[in-house]
Design a protein around this nucleic acid. Structure first.
Lengths: 198, 198
DNA sequence: CTATTTTGTTAGTGTGCACTAACACAAAGG
DNA sequence: CCTTTGTGTTAGTGCACACTAACAAAATAG
């Protein structure tokens, strides 16, 4: 009968661009016209792939979160002496915020009185936090010499998210030098990982 | 000759309300009609006090920042045994984010490609950071027993801002219990203050 | 009082934007 | 081939919103 449905592929193809635009402009300032222009298609094409602008935004949140986690996971697995957490820390020091995760989450927070958006950003943060907490626990298990731990891993994970957030803000606004941000990430990050001062 | 100019007082009178609305809705979703409604005046009245919506937003940023700092300062001065920093920490654990400082800064970050807004939020963050850094230095000077310090006060101050940020996000989105947020503030906050684990 | 200026109210205007309808073309299955 | 369905293009609609013009009323200085 008819042609087969390629809409799933089309969505996957456009999503990185859409996420990029939302990360760049936020939700409100992103227009469907701009999204179409950057994707190189007509607005109607996008409207056939998603129900509306909000659906595109929700998809973008999910995409940028999944992409970030996937990258970290690939960093975390390779196994030499250093722990997964240390490798992710080192990686982030280089590529921090590359996928626009923070910017999109910020945009979403500003729209959080919409229940769907609130739910999306809430679950993203929860998965984010849980993943980091796991890394911390894992790190401490592998390095028993750091075992004289004072900081609850759950708290340390939230603090790590907070430090990551302010580092991204600082970079976006040029609040501090790249060197200071790198030290912030490694020193405070290391402290939270180990649970005590070095 | 004519009546004296009361516009400065009128501005001061409306600013808290305007800041509240911007903190609640963000920049884009705040309409001038809503601002006027909440202030109990007509739109034209507001337009006579400020040049436009952006000017109202800039004034709101400045107001919410000054108001927060003023509150903290009053908390910091009273002098019993505890240090200023500890008192501010304790106060924030109770009244966290009451003045919408974080929400307004978030809204401003989303508009940071506008040079004026970018400048306003940038200087706000710098003053914010510098103030906290001072508190940390002061705390450590008053408590020489904590002097075996490992963490640079500048880094600790940025980390404190980050932790404060994530706590506000967590509260807004119900990401964690109030108890967990209080522990996050006091334990990590205390750690950053002292520069080493207790 | 009078002159001058702030304050209040009404009624717009132009614009940007999310979203849609209608139509032409392309592609694949039978 | 033909039929059915996906893809592209054009043009447009309705609405929300930032901002303004014009005029009425109230208040203060001389």
């Amino acid at each position: 009968m008819p042609r087969s449905d390629r809409s799933a592929e089309r969505r996957a193809q456009h999503l990185p661009v859409i996420a990029e635009v939302f990360a760049e402009l936020g939700y409100r300032r992103t227009t469907t016209a701009e999204l179409a222009r950057r994707c190189g298609v007509q607005e109607t094409t996008l409207y056939r792939l998603w129900n509306g602008k909000k659906a595109m935004f929700l998809a973008a949140i999910d995409h940028v979160f999944s992409a970030s986690m996937a990258i970290w996971q690939t960093q975390a697995v390779a196994g030499d002496g250093t722990s997964s957490a240390e490798k992710v820390l080192a990686y982030e020091a280089e590529h921090l915020g590359e996928f626009g995760l923070y910017r999109i989450l910020f945009a979403a927070i500003g729209e959080s009185d919409d229940d769907d958006i609130r739910a999306a950003v809430s679950t993203s943060y929860h998965r984010f936090h849980r993943w980091i907490e796991r890394q911390i626990i894992d790190h401490r298990r592998r390095r028993p010499e750091d075992a004289a731990v004072e900081i609850d891993p759950a708290l340390a994970a939230w603090a790590a998210v907070g430090v990551g957030t302010i580092i991204n803000i600082a970079r976006d606004l040029d609040l501090s030098s790249g060197d200071e941000r790198a030290r912030l990430l490694s020193e405070i990050g290391g402290l939270l990982l180990q649970g005590k001062t070095p």
